[in-house]
Design a protein around this nucleic acid. Structure first.
Lengths: 229, 229
DNA sequence: TAGATTGTTAATCGATTAACAATC
DNA sequence: TAGATTGTTAATCGATTAACAATC
């Protein structure tokens, strides 16, 4: 894996998959879910670029996943492709969204309105995949009340209320390391189930909460190894 | 994979590994390299927090990699642990760095001095792992000449020279999507071998260059799936 | 000693790949 | 038709895990 993941993971709880037919398995294996997510990323971009069909070979070039495996992953859920042609980009996007059960809209709380927070709020990397930043928080009184990416920066004391009102499932921590554990605790208390951690700290959270720590340097180390050898 | 990849990957080229003894295999498998990188991330933080020893169980809690596999991964290279005690954090860090052959210093060129570029330049996520931002570039004449994270922002025309002078191996693209392919081309021309892409575009590069695209939304999709099921 | 944790075995499961008939 | 690419099989390889003796 990841390559790579490769990349942060999630605690496992596997059950039977790949029933062979078109039925959706109970639960995807970690590997399948990770790969489908990556296909989705490429497909979303391909769609933006106006591409109508895409072959497993092309998907393979972009994701570095073997093309046979891509066809295999997809064919487990139905016959989405057309022989000699490839896959329809738009329909494959919606199929994978359906499989990942993330076809809907999901709301995010962004903690931290510094450089990173602003970069995240003004980008559409999250928006492209159905995630919407519905609230931004900061502890700096100077920043509170200012506008960042169409949102007014709020005081952290509003967090609990906002999480309930807006049905926020994901909290993104774009704060300095020394503040992140305290804010992670706040997120957990407010009922957030997934924390995306852009700080370097190791966060301690209850088992029902998932932490994903961003680690660009780790990804680089990994890429560097294969360059050096 | 990671998340992960587990997470962006790198084209494979596997050979025999796990020779059982203490010798270093020719080349690590993708999975092993990815996991070792992740252990390193946790260990680096643990060291910062003043932790002296760490058990495979603790490492497992933070990385979500099975503790047996962690011990297995490590024991392939030597007997680093102490039964009943665990692993010495500091010595394990340097052992893994040695295995990944990334014990040295590696220089980075950062393209883009906007919010994201500033966030990267002022953070020490890269520095902690031996990566140093030695040059920052932007196309905005207003930004050129200003200082960002101890570096003067330069014009992109200086890229080629800097890459040679500073022995830059990695280029980080923190620019809008519409500019990224053009700048990726510049990086390739200048001789950079690894591109870390924070934009959403799918980049086209020669086979000898590795592109790693940051995809927080993909990681979130993945985490969300396991929350929803 | 008693408790903890490593290092390692053995068994299983899933990932990976080449190959190719089916078919657009 | 000819070329391309899917869907699927079969064979192999590596990852994963439980279990436990070794030993700190």
């Amino acid at each position: 894996m990841t390559r790579q993941d490769l990349v942060g993971h999630v605690a496992s709880n596997s059950s039977d998959n790949h029933d062979g037919g078109e039925g959706m398995p109970e639960r995807l294996s970690l590997g399948v879910a990770a790969r489908l997510s990556r296909y989705l990323q490429v497909l979303t971009q391909a769609k933006k670029m106006g591409k109508e069909t895409i072959s497993s070979k092309e998907l393979s070039d972009y994701t570095h996943v073997n093309s046979t495996q891509i066809r295999r992953d997809l064919s487990g859920f139905g016959k989405f492709g057309k022989r000699g042609v490839g896959y329809n980009v738009e329909s494959l996007v919606s199929q994978i969204r359906k499989i990942l059960r993330t076809a809907g809209q999901h709301n995010i709380a962004l903690l931290g309105a510094g450089h990173l927070g602003k970069a995240i709020a003004s980008s559409d990397i999250f928006a492209d995949h159905g995630f919407r930043v519905v609230a931004i928080f900061d502890s700096d009184p100077v920043k509170i009340g200012t506008e960042v990416g169409n949102q007014v920066v709020r005081d952290i004391s509003d967090l609990h209320q906002l999480v309930e009102e807006e049905d926020i499932v994901v909290g993104v921590l774009a704060v300095p390391s020394h503040a992140s554990q305290k804010l992670a605790d706040e997120l957990v208390r407010a009922g957030v189930k997934i924390i995306f951690n852009y700080s370097e700290s190791l966060l301690v959270v209850p088992p029902e909460v998932t932490v994903h720590t961003s680690s660009p340097a780790v990804d680089l180390l990994y890429a560097l190894y294969f360059y050096l050898t």
